[in-house]
Design a protein around this nucleic acid. Structure first.
Length: 227
DNA sequence: TGCCAGGCCCTCTTTAGGGCCTT
């Protein structure tokens, strides 16, 4: 299934908190890369892998209309004060139109990619869409890089690696790229790390992983607000 | 309003409990 995907759209959300606090999105970043760029990474004069030159980006800050968890504010730099002062809009129908048009511009089939996406980013995005009475095309694919890298380790070593923090986005980036993360917990920074991690294993991800993707229609909302 | 994740994996397991990963 993944071998037929033409565009991977890397996604990261910042939010007011974690799942149990019924979070709302404070920042969304989508970066679309064509399979041809991901499978043939360009290197600089030092032989270091570079982000593809041809990328489409959509990054927006969002007024969550809810108190942002203190820790979430500290790590993301987004708080109710600066979002309010900058007059950011909420997650409204206009934003959904933007995102859908962005996805529609990409060569299809399209696959969304997020780290721990099955548990956090995809369900939360689905909740926000459903609250506006909207949704994405059911033909959209979803890939969770947390599952991908655990599955690759299982294929190579018989089991995922153990230990706290082994599969965090930052740690995967350190091991894949050999550099310290930059702009961690800023949506665009996290997406850039995600692309680099993906490119470092693109061939294996596309050819070997078979359990790490779902159809968008299989994603359940994180929660449903009572009205 | 207030509720307050969750499926998978591991082991000091299986009559269970705790950690991971995302903000």
């Amino acid at each position: 299934m993944l071998s037929s995907v033409k565009t991977f759209v890397f996604l990261d959300l910042e939010a007011t908190g974690l799942n149990k606090y019924l979070p709302k999105i404070t920042e969304i970043c989508l970066v679309a890369a064509h399979i041809s760029s991901l499978q043939n990474p360009v290197t600089n004069e030092f032989g270091e892998m570079q982000l593809p030159r041809v990328l489409d980006k959509l990054c927006l800050c969002v007024d969550p209309e809810k108190t942002i968890n203190r820790y979430a504010s500290e790590i993301s730099g987004l708080n109710n004060k600066n979002l309010g002062e900058n007059e950011k809009q909420n997650f409204n129908s206009g934003l959904i139109v933007l995102i859908k048009e962005f996805l529609d511009r990409q060569a299809k089939p399209v696959c969304l990619v997020a780290h721990n996406g099955f548990k956090f980013d995809f369900p939360l995005l689905k909740t926000e869409l459903k609250e506006q009475g909207n949704d994405f095309s059911s033909s959209l694919l979803c890939l969770d890089t947390l599952h991908v890298f655990q599955e690759l380790d299982t294929l190579e070593n018989g089991a995922p690696k153990k230990g706290k923090g082994f599969y965090t986005l930052s740690e995967l980036y350190r091991r894949s790229v050999g550099k310290e993360p930059i702009d961690s917990h800023h949506a665009e920074g996290d997406v850039q790390m995600l692309i680099m991690i993906f490119m470092s294993k693109a061939k294996q991800v596309i050819e070997k992983t078979s359990y790490s993707f779902k159809m968008w229609s299989e994603i359940s909302p994180m929660y449903v607000t009572r009205r």
